[in-house]
Design a protein around this nucleic acid. Structure first.
Lengths: 340, 340
DNA sequence: CGTTAGCACTCAACGTGATGGAGTGCTAAC
DNA sequence: GTTAGCACTCCATCACGTTGAGTGCTAACG
């Protein structure tokens, strides 16, 4: 793969991303100053096709990049492009004006991403399982039930109704809360070990109360895992010519409805930094014509969640990458403003 | 509008709903046993068009119903069709198997509606503003803040961080809670009158504490108003031939993204029982080719929320109506199971 | 030996015209 | 009032020729 081939591949991918039409040797020669004639480019293109970087619908149509072609482009040929100052300002203004509560941060983040990239955006809101336990408190509800309120370090609160075992009084629950708070403080919710549980058991003493505690912890964590996904710009894909086919759109909308599936996908990419999955590299049916770019964001070293751009394989990788990188850093600052 | 005209109109609407193609006099004569020849039907159709119930793309295409035609059909000609026992069983099973927590009820309700009607469904989850106040409790957070936990009769819980005024101790807040609980019990959240507030003021005595109370009530209610909307079956509209045009689909998807708009629409129909808005009767741009059927559901006489079906004007009104009526009654039972 | 011009060939896209079918509207007969 | 008959309209479809973009190959060039 000599330099000229790379430049030609780059030119083809860029032109195709822009025009959405198969690109021919003549166009490349005209638009990019490669110093060679269309005939030479044709020869190189034939080579690139042989190597698997380009595809051909039929003789006499131009070439389009294959998944492998895009992959090479993304990994080695992507021109770095800093974000417009203008766009940065827009983003700041957007957050300033529209976000009032912490849960609006993610909704608006999704909006911004889809607005800037003209693609679908996905934002997986911070996950309590990754957050550190802060405290658990009980409120009396009636003589058989109490409300458990769980707080994490990152400042999220969840609540849950719990049954009190026969014979237990609300005071027992308050004592239980003290024990649990003492033992669990600082632990992340998904790393509560048997050892810690044993500790709690010993401190509580009473067996039936410990069972209740177990139940409470279990159910509280269950709520905590209930992470939220925000989707933005779903209508944007319709602007892309490759999705003028209603069948394809339907497949994608169907995928959007399967929230759990999307969450799982984003989950799988958690903690991997910025990652691009191109076309057929995606295993999920319906995403084979798409590329997914994901990034995970942190707050003081603590993993928070995932933001992603979903578009056609023909998406503007450079722009999306720049944006995600920017949002990545920025999001922590915005969240911090709402932290206590 | 004599009886024969009505029967012909009914036949045309039904056939058009089924086939999505303009219907001609011959088809009507063949498929419906009206005892008259196509020529007679043609004459009647010309009359119906004159009266505004039918439309005509060009000479020599069949007729399609106008908004007025659908309106008459829905109001006067709709054959009542009870729900299949089979479908009822399916719905029960669905709720049984998939719903574990109260907030999943609405998600699944949306799924069921879109699955049965093959259209988009909307479910506005119970609104705390309409719910009766049950109690408010505080939990200490640090020395300047507390967590306010608000509960309603219908069993929904919301929480919110509140600042404590300088000099106020957590004990003051607990006293405040007692007063507020005493005064507000049983009131619906959107009907807290100045008189009640005055009462609270007198009982609290301390002025700066009352201001804090006001702030707390205000902010808690603010959270309470934060109702949720569930959307289901968005991909279903793509199956309808009238939405094979990508531009139209785009307009609708765009509308789906404007959650607040949808909430407002459903809100406007709150408490009106079952209501159908047909085609151009809709004021919202993008919904002019659609019909919206809404119904509000109750729990022990208390208004809970709205369920709706959104489809092309050509939707199966009879089926949608039957289903919404059934869900209407059923939903209360399902919610009741999670009530305490 | 790499590069280039030239040329034949391929294929999609487009416009054109012919054809058929579904449906209407009108008129005259029943 | 109802119906059969008929001329007319319009859409959908297909076949057909044309055009233009693009390739692949070959032979000439520096």
């Amino acid at each position: 793969m000599d330099e000229r081939k790379q430049r030609i591949l780059q030119a083809i991918v860029q032109d195709y991303i822009e025009s959405a039409e198969p690109v021919g040797s003549r166009t490349i020669a005209r638009r990019h100053d490669l110093g060679v004639s269309p005939a030479t480019i044709r020869n190189e293109m034939a080579d690139l096709e042989m190597l698997g970087y380009l595809e051909h619908i039929h003789t006499s149509s131009g070439r389009i990049p294959s998944s492998k072609g895009y992959r090479f482009y993304v990994d080695d040929l992507l021109p770095s492009k800093p974000l417009d100052e203008e766009e940065k300002a827009l983003i700041d203004k957007w957050y300033m004006e529209r976000v009032r509560r912490i849960d609006e941060v993610f909704q608006e983040t999704a909006r911004i991403i889809s607005h800037v990239t003209k693609n679908v955006s996905l934002v997986l809101a911070p996950q309590m399982t990754q957050a550190a336990f802060r405290c658990l408190q009980f409120l009396p509800l009636d003589d058989r039930r109490a409300i458990a309120v769980l707080m994490t370090d990152a400042g999220f609160i969840e609540n849950k109704i719990v049954d009190m075992p026969d014979g237990a009084a609300f005071e027992d629950f308050q004592r239980m809360a003290l024990v649990i708070n003492g033992c669990l403080a600082g632990h992340t919710l998904d790393a509560i070990s048997p050892a810690v549980m044993k500790n709690i058991r010993e401190e509580i003493g009473d067996e039936s109360l410990f069972e209740a505690a177990q139940e409470v912890i279990h159910r509280s964590l269950d709520t905590g895992k209930h992470e939220r996904l925000y989707l933005g710009g779903t209508s944007e894909i319709l602007s892309q010519p490759e999705f003028h086919d209603v069948e394809k759109v339907k497949e994608i909308l169907l995928m959007f409805e399967e929230e759990q599936l999307l969450k799982d996908i984003l989950h799988a990419h958690l903690g991997e930094g910025l990652k691009v999955t191109i076309g057929k590299e995606n295993e999920v049916r319906g995403m084979q014509d798409c590329s997914l770019m994901t990034a995970t964001y942190h707050l003081d070293g603590e993993l928070l969640g995932t933001i992603a751009v979903l578009g056609p394989t023909r998406m503007e990788y450079g722009k999306a990458m720049t944006l995600l990188n920017y949002m990545n850093g920025h999001l922590a600052d915005v969240v911090k403003k709402f932290r206590w």
